[in-house]
Computed example of a mutant assay.
Amino acid sequence: MITRRGFLRLIGGSALSMVSLSAYAVGIEPMLLTHVKRYALTPPHWPTGLKLRVVALADIHACRPWMTPERIASLVENTNALQPDLIVLLGDYVDGMRLVTADVSAPDWASALSGLRAPLGVLSILGNHDWWHDYAAQVAGAGPTVARGALESVGIPVLENDVVRLEKDGHGFWIAGLADQLAIRPSKALRRHGFKGLDDLDGTLAKVSDSAPVILLAHEPDIFPKVPWRVSLTLSGHTHGGQVRLFGYSPVVPSEFGNRYAYGHVVENDRNLIVSGGLGFSILPVRFGVRPEILQIDLG
């Protein structure tokens, strides 16, 4: 039988543990040195002899004090040090929560990203927050967004339902980028019900004009069940790995599929998806079990 003193010690110890875990989740893990998450795979119908290193950044969510221009510039240095052939940005450059001390303007975060360097270039897509926080785009129900203009102003192309053909060592391949699947928010004032996506998967892939492999960039991974086998690899962000992840499970995931596409490398019917845990956060500045990460993907 537990004594009163023992009970109080138990409660006190539990409370201290909770405070310690909360402090770690809010104050330490989100600011840890960024982890490089490495994947190596040869997708179906990938050309023999094509070795390609793709490095991906997702969900930066620029804001103070969590993701300052200085921290983004440091991430840029870490990314370049990985010697990528190609760098891709998977959307959500804009902050995603109210618990900030100050916003970071689009010119400031774009300027920090302008230092990215790779022989085959830097390509990007937009995320839902890049649309949601753009009042003019929400009213119009269409772009171009401020985020797109900021990226293009520093020489980073934005793919919205568009494709680019690249070549390495005599082998061609395609990068296809989808427009956001949750771009336009519901609005009573504008009499809009439900989210409206601007993505066009079929129309985008129709622009691929030869049999070279395709890498698809799609901010939200929920598109994956519709992605055809023709696509060698799909890269997504958005979920942040749930921001809290224990024993391979995330209690809350912003996806219709729950944990199915929450994080990591998913293979279904010989099709490959990699979902980044991202760099910043939305709703709350909390990470536990999902360190901020840069993706390094070696193909072939």
Rank of each mutant, 00 (worst) to 15 (best):
G264M: 13
L57K: 10
Q243F: 04
G194A: 03
R271E: 14
T3D: 05
P65A: 05
A106F: 02
G27M: 11
V154L: 07
M97Y: 01
Q296L: 15
Y261A: 05
G27H: 07
S187D: 02
R287C: 06
Q138Y: 01
L166M: 12
L295R: 11
L16V: 15
L50S: 05
R53D: 01
S250C: 06
D199G: 00
A179T: 11
S17M: 14
A25F: 12
G49N: 03
Q296M: 14
H133P: 00
A58V: 09
D95I: 01
K207M: 10
D95K: 06
M67K: 14
V275N: 10
L33C: 02
L295G: 11
A112L: 14
S255T: 15
L159H: 06
L41G: 01
D200H: 02
H219A: 03
H238G: 02
P107Q: 13
A40V: 15
V54H: 01
V104L: 07
C63R: 09
G258A: 05
N272I: 00
N259Q: 12
C63G: 06
L151H: 06
A137Q: 00
E167V: 06
K37T: 13
R5W: 03
R230H: 03
E268R: 12
G242R: 10
S276H: 09
F224T: 01
W229F: 08
L284M: 15
D222M: 08
A206V: 04
T42Y: 03
V158Y: 01
I184T: 02
H35M: 08
L57E: 12
R291Q: 14
L32M: 14
L8Y: 08
V227T: 00
V54I: 15
L216G: 02
Y93K: 06
I2Y: 04
G172Y: 10
W131E: 01
P254F: 07
A176S: 13
G241K: 04
L99C: 03
G197Q: 02
L295N: 07
N161K: 04
F257R: 09
S276G: 08
W174Q: 10
W132Q: 05
G177A: 07
V36G: 04
G143Y: 07
V275A: 06
N259D: 13
S276P: 15
V36K: 13
K168E: 05
V231L: 00
T42M: 15
A212R: 10
Q296Y: 05
P285Q: 08
V214K: 01
L166Q: 09
G49P: 00
I294A: 10
P292D: 14
L216E: 02
L217A: 06
R165Q: 15
L33Y: 08
W131L: 00
G115A: 13
V163C: 04
I60S: 09
E220C: 04
R191E: 13
T101V: 05
N259Y: 13
G277I: 10
P251Q: 10
V100D: 05
S111K: 15
Y263A: 05
A142H: 04
Y261D: 08
V100Q: 10
D162E: 13
D199I: 02
V253N: 12
V146N: 06
L233R: 07
A106H: 13
I274G: 08
V36N: 08
W174D: 08
I28R: 11
H133I: 00
L41N: 09
N272C: 13
L32T: 13
V88K: 08
L32F: 03
W109H: 11
P186I: 06
S114C: 12
H193M: 04
L89Y: 03
K168V: 09
E220T: 08
G237N: 00
D270C: 03
A23T: 11
